[in-house]
Structures are given as C-alpha cells and as structure tokens.
Simulated assay, not measured.
Amino acid sequence: MRQVTPLGFFSSISSQSRFSVNAEEIKKLSGQMPVHDCSRVAEYLRRAPVIIALMGYTEDVVGKKFGVMGGSAIHSDGTYYWRRDTAEYVETYRTGLPSGFMEHGARMQWSVPHLSDAEILEIDDFFESLRTQS
C-alpha cells in the first residue's frame, strides 16, 4: 500500500457543503501564490492522475467565480493528494499551498511523474484503508 500526504484541507474527501467550511481558510491563503507560479502549479494539479473519481459539480466557496465538474474527485502525484478543484483556487485566487508541496513540485520541475496502474491501485488501497479505519 502506498501512502500519500494530504494537501491540507484541499485533500478533503467531502461533499460541497462540508468543504464550504474552509472558505475563510482559503480566503486567508489568497494572494500567497507567486503570479509566475500559478499556471504551472494549476496545470500540475490537473494533470496528475485521478485516484478517486467522484461525480458532481463543485462551486467556488470563496467568491462564486467558478464551478468544476467532478471538482471533489481526488488526484495524486504519488506523494500528495488533493481535490480536482484545487487548481481553480490556485488560478483564480493565487491560493498558497503548503511549502512542502511547493518544494516537491519545484524539485519535479512541475512535471507530473508517471504512475503505473499498479501504483494507482496501491494509492487506492491506501484510501480504502482510511475508509475501513473510520
């Protein structure tokens, strides 16, 4: 089983209404992402494989500026995991992300590593173990 690290509250596997409690936290992080990093970080977040595909439509909990089909789906680069709509918060609000993730992405030159089917299944097993622990 491959363990992955949550990307703060952006790793929340929850409904839109439960995720909306993070609105104030997201506002506090707004403007913290350097302008020159926003597009490459957002692209990295989008290109990582989907580990848990969740249907539904999420809306921006800060300023209602965007909506995302499948926004609560979970992506992973094999080290971290996050919600699909994280990319929109980065692009729209320049939302800062944890320094460990930013350092990791910079080391990777913002190029998403290839994950084999077996690696994706190992990460999925990790999420299954979290569900069974609850």
Rank of each mutant, 00 (worst) to 15 (best):
S76A: 09
H75Q: 03
K65P: 02
V4P: 01
S39F: 07
V4F: 03
D37S: 12
E88W: 04
Y44F: 11
I52T: 05
L130Q: 13
L115G: 04
A118M: 13
K28A: 14
E119I: 01
F66R: 01
E122H: 10
T86M: 03
L121Y: 10
C38K: 14
R47M: 07
E103V: 15
E119L: 06
V90A: 03
E122L: 13
S20Y: 03
Y81E: 05
R40I: 07
I26L: 02
M33D: 05
L29P: 01
G56W: 05
L45D: 00
L121R: 14
V68G: 02
S129H: 12
F126P: 01
A42E: 01
G96I: 06
S76D: 03
G63R: 12
E91V: 01
T58Q: 04
S129M: 12
S12D: 09
L29G: 03
H75I: 00
S20W: 00
Q16M: 09
C38L: 11
I120H: 04
V68F: 03
M1A: 14
S129P: 02
Q32S: 11
I123C: 07
H114V: 15
A48N: 00
M108L: 15
T5C: 07
M69F: 12
H75V: 01
S20R: 10
F10A: 01
S116N: 09
V41T: 06
G8R: 06
E43C: 09
M108N: 14
P49N: 01
Y81P: 00
T5F: 08
P6N: 08
A23V: 02
S134D: 12
R107T: 10
S20M: 07
C38G: 06
S99N: 15
E59S: 12
L115E: 07
A87W: 00
M102R: 13
K28Q: 08
F126S: 04
H75E: 05
S72G: 03
L121I: 13
F66N: 03
T95V: 13
V41E: 00
G63L: 06
S111V: 15
W110F: 15
H36A: 12
V35A: 11
Q3F: 11
G67R: 11
C38S: 13
V50E: 12
K28H: 09
F126T: 05
S76P: 05
E59L: 07
S15M: 07
Q109R: 14
Q3V: 09
Y80H: 04
I26W: 03
G56K: 05
E25C: 08
T58C: 05
I52M: 13
V50R: 08
Y80S: 01
S72Y: 04
V62C: 05
A87D: 06
V35M: 08
L130R: 13
S76E: 04
S17W: 10
P113G: 08
E122F: 04
